[in-house]
């Protein structure tokens, strides 16, 4: 399998539904917590070390062969907001559809059969990465990077932020993405080899969960979550 498969999977234009989600940025913008590039960087940093770390560890654990049902239940337990659980499952289902076309495999078909309404997106991402011949590290990179690239592109639309500034934010966070991926993969190895899925990271940001519930009740919004 080709390493370039990672570029296909991580491409922002991969048709898996991400374009309609802001990674919590829409609620943060409306609450006045993101007003420009500096706030966006801090927001993304917080998200990287919480949602990004957890998603990276779950994706890596799925690549390493952790039980998908257990992982999905453990992801539920780490997501207090019903709106976010719903969004994670919808995105998981959309990702699986795109991946089954891109990397047809019996394992992906079985996952679609087992979770007709979708499993948590990071769990699906791990199974997909494996089907694409990618490693646990690759899957964790996809998950960690998505946790910051989603809000950054959403804020370009929400605030008409200069897209060069938003991209600069992502470039400045790159070294931290490396660190989070290292931690996520190490945690996934420990969980799969001995400690079990309960030992996977559970870093959370309560304001994100609260913001997601608030956002889900709006009559007018640009993004689905």
């Amino acid at each position: 399998m080709s390493r370039a498969a990672l570029l296909v999977l991580a491409d922002g234009r991969f048709p898996a539904g991400g374009h309609a989600h802001s990674g919590g940025a829409e609620a943060a913008v409306k609450a006045g917590r993101i007003t420009g590039a500096a706030d966006l960087e801090e927001y993304c940093r917080g998200r990287l070390h919480t949602a990004g770390l957890v998603a990276g560890a779950f994706a890596a654990a799925a690549v390493l062969g952790a039980d998908v049902r257990e992982l999905d239940a453990a992801a539920d337990a780490r997501t207090p907001s019903a709106a976010l659980r719903g969004a994670a499952r919808r995105l998981g289902r959309q990702l699986l559809r795109a991946a089954r076309a891109a990397w047809p495999s019996a394992e992906l078909d079985a996952l679609a059969r087992e979770f007709p309404k979708g499993a948590h997106q990071p769990v699906v991402l791990g199974v997909v990465a494996r089907a694409a011949g990618l490693s646990a590290v690759d899957a964790a990179y996809c998950a960690a990077y998505e946790s910051v690239s989603g809000p950054a592109t959403a804020v370009v639309r929400l605030l008409s932020l200069d897209p060069f500034e938003a991209t600069g934010v992502l470039a400045r966070l790159a070294a931290e993405v490396d660190l989070v991926v290292d931690r996520a993969v190490e945690a996934a190895r420990e969980a799969v080899e001995e400690a079990g899925v309960d030992a996977l990271p559970a870093a959370s940001a309560p304001l994100s969960e609260i913001g997601a519930e608030w956002h889900a009740g709006w009559a007018v919004r640009l993004f689905a979550s």
Binding site: R13, P15, A16, G17, G18, H19, A20, H21, S22, R90, Q94, L95, R97, A98, A154, R157, R221, L222, F223, A224
Partner: peptide, 18 residues
């Protein structure tokens, strides 16, 4: 929900519509 881009949801990334 289209993330402010209906043309993306009906053409470039049709997963939510499917």
């Amino acid at each position: 929900e289209t993330g402010a881009c209906p043309h993306t949801a009906i053409r470039d990334d049709i997963s939510a519509n499917l």
